[in-house]
Each structure stands twice: as C-alpha cells, then as structure tokens.
Amino acid sequence: MSVITVSNLHKFYGPLHAVRGISFAVEEGEVFGLLGPNGAGKTTTVETIIGLLRRDRGEVRVLGFDPEKDSLAVKSRIGVQLQTVHLFPRLTVFETLLLFSSFYRECRPIGELLALVGLTEKAHTRVEKLSGGQLKRLSVALAFVGNGAVIFLDEPTSGLDPQSRRGLWDTIRRLQGEGKTIFLTTHYLDEAERLCDRVAIIDHGVIIALGKPGDLIASHFREKAIEIPFDGDVLPFASLPGVTRFRKDENTVTIYTEDLPETFVALNQLAESKDIPLEGVVVREATLEDVFLKLTGRRVRE
C-alpha cells in the first residue's frame, strides 16, 4: 500500500522552477531515500509533501490525505525533522521534547527518545548550548515524539560524526522494524545505498532515477570499477580490453570494465610498459555515486 503518492509535482520560487514535475510513490514500511546534490530540490519536495510549502501544480497524498486541505490530519500522523533546526533557545532538551509531545495524542516516552538519539546525558542542557550534531540529533528525536506512521527526515545525518551517523542508521532500521515508513533525504550516496530500500535520485528538480539501489546500479553498470591513482594522459586506459567507460578526477582515473580479469591483466602490462605505479589501485563494485556520475556527469558533492 502506498503511504505517500506524489504526481507531477511542481514548485516555483518566483522565476526559479525548483521542482519540475516529479512523481513517485512510497510504500508502507519501506525506507525511501531522496538523493541529490545541494539545491537539487530535496528539501522543497519534502516541505511540499508535509504541507509546509504550497505546491504550484500536481497532486500529493500522505496516508490518503491532501496535506494542503487536511493539514492537521497529515501532521498529526507523521513525524518531521526539518533540515535546519530552530527551537526555543533557552529551553532544555527535556523541556523541548515535553513541549513537542503535547502536540500528539500518542507519544513515545521521553526517556526512550533521549536514549534513541544518545542525548540522555544532555537532557537538562539548554538548546542554545548544544553542538550542531547534538541539535541535529534532538531534531531527529522530535520527529519520533508523536510515534507517527511516516517519518520524514531531511538530511538527518549531515553534520554528524561517523559514530552518530551509524547510530542513527541503527535507529532508522529499528523504527522500520516497528513498521514505520521512513522518508529521508541525503546527499550521502553510500548512506542511501546501505539504508534505503528504494531511492529516487533528483537533480535540478527532476527525478533522474528511481528504484532499489542494487537494481539502479545493476541497470546502469554491469561493470566493476577500477580506481587508479594517476595524474596524466588517460587515453591508454580507455583502450584496455573490457573497458566500457572511464572517468578522470583530480588524481584518480576510474575505469569501468565488463571483464575484470582481462582488463586487469592488460592494465598490468600497460603499467609495466609505461612505468605507472599500481599501488593504491582499488577494485570495487559500482555504486550509486557512479550512477549519479553517469547520469549527470557530475559528482554529488562538487
């Protein structure tokens, strides 16, 4: 069953056409990721779906309700974490959670929420004294307060240290285990690959790919990727047997091959003849990053 359906959604900011007719559906119980670089339209999409922004065209349904017409019905059934966190500066973490818990009929215990995001020790610290990462974790906890069926997380892990990031992944999986549907945006493609059941890649307000991360990678790449630390003429690499595509970044050449053993043998010979050091060469599966690169010609973070 679809809990969120978006069809032909458009949003303008004055002359700027931020979201250009996107459509997708999110199924119950899945972790759905909206990926894209900064400014791609992720936040605009989320804020339109939850009814914080008015859409200019298209249809949106969340749990069967139109977020513009039945704003309260939608908001009381979902949990929201917005990208930029703004709260009463002089309330403590605990008081903030208490305040937010009064908005919902059914709430999670505050102690559990604090433990969930690792803020138990900061319960009586004022919001204005929290670090950026702690504030982010508090905002994530606020999305869980109401025990909503659908949780929207807008860039929940940006600005978090690696440990907190992993902690949050565990939390998200746990909530998924409880049957929640999670809609998250991120510009970390590795995160989306690990965490999301399905992803939509958005760029310049348009969805350029939609599906399971594994399927997306497989449909765009039967190849494996070889990363060679090298700064020079790349043409010889392109003509190696099995290579379908190559890419040159600052100090790295990435070649994609359909036939890894053959390419690797040839690469060895090439390296010997041209005296290219092969230390630091990495062979890996293609990733969403590669997909994004292929579809847009850019990296997500540039």
Partner: peptide, 17 residues
Amino acid sequence: ELREKKVTRYLGAMPLR
C-alpha cells in the same frame, strides 16, 4: 526572535494551530 530564528516555521510542521 522566534520568527527570525524560524522557530515558528519549524513549529509549522507540527500538528498544532
């Protein structure tokens, strides 16, 4: 201050009048 710091906006995403 609440408006400038967008607290009112944040609360706009919550189920309350």
